[in-house]
């Protein structure tokens, strides 16, 4: 009986997915709202990368929601793994080759992450990607050096400041403009680093926030290993 119901459900879901996919006109050029975004992002937001323009400018409030979800997930994990005693990671030191090369690569990875979120409005990538790249760099140091420590207080201060910057920019738009996250700064010349109004500011804040959150999360998790 259960198998029959499962097969029936699968047939219904499959039918509607195929029906929807067949109705999408692939390869015929962009229409509707996509066309509007591609044609007028530079004029309306000043950002060259239209994905960033959509994520931060047109759908900026959704991004605030995403940042909040990530923050709540990290906080929940920290609450579950909370331990009064300041624990140490009990991982072994890695070999000399891994240690030396990760010492050289770690600043480069951090630099790449910072580049990705600072240039979010010009090149592919942005705050989430840059923050995740920085966290992977810190992870490399965590697994190569037993003594590598992060300052949790500093991490939470960075995280709170970045979150507050995002919300403050949003309210500045509400006060000086017409709506929450309204652009209040000049656009500048499209394609330059200092352009696109509030988009780079928000992405730098998001980058710091995501990087600090994921680093703290990894540190909490790695400390639970006996």
């Amino acid at each position: 009986m259960r198998k029959v119901i499962a097969i029936l459900l699968l047939i219904i879901i499959g039918y509607y997915s195929i029906d929807t996919i067949l109705k999408i006109p692939f390869g015929e050029g962009v229409k509707g709202v996509g066309k509007h975004y591609l044609e007028s992002t530079i004029k309306e937001t000043g950002a060259v990368n239209s994905v960033t323009a959509i994520v931060v400018s047109y759908r900026g409030f959704d991004t605030l929601g995403e940042v909040t979800v990530l923050f709540l997930a990290a906080t929940g994990l920290g609450a579950i793994l909370y331990d009064k005693k300041g624990k140490k990671r009990s991982l072994q030191n890695a070999s000399l080759i891994v240690k030396t090369s990760s010492k050289i690569i770690y600043p480069l990875i951090a630099l790449l992450g910072a580049y990705v979120f600072v240039h979010g409005h010009l090149t592919p990538g942005g705050g989430f990607q840059g923050g995740a790249i920085i966290a992977t760099g810190v992870l490399l140091m965590f697994i190569s050096y037993r003594s590598f420590e992060t300052n949790h207080k500093a991490l939470s201060i960075i995280e709170s400041l970045a979150g507050m910057t995002f919300v403050t920019i949003g309210f500045a738009g509400l006060i000086y403009g017409t709506s929450f996250l309204q652009n209040i700064l000049p656009f500048g010349i499209p394609g330059e680093l200092f352009s696109a109004g509030i988009i780079p500011l928000i992405y730098v804040a998001v980058g710091f926030k995501v990087g600090a959150e994921l680093t703290a999360l990894l540190d909490n998790l790695l400390k639970t290993i006996k």
Binding site: V51, P124, Q129, A132, A135, T136
Partner: peptide
């Protein structure tokens, strides 16, 4: 889709894997 590719590379390859490995270890 280079934006999605960056996210997938950083989060899918590195962070998710290490979180799963830690969970399996526990």
């Amino acid at each position: 889709a280079p934006d999605v590719a960056l996210t997938e590379a950083a989060i899918g390859v590195a962070l998710t894997t290490i979180i799963f490995v830690i969970t399996i270890k526990k």
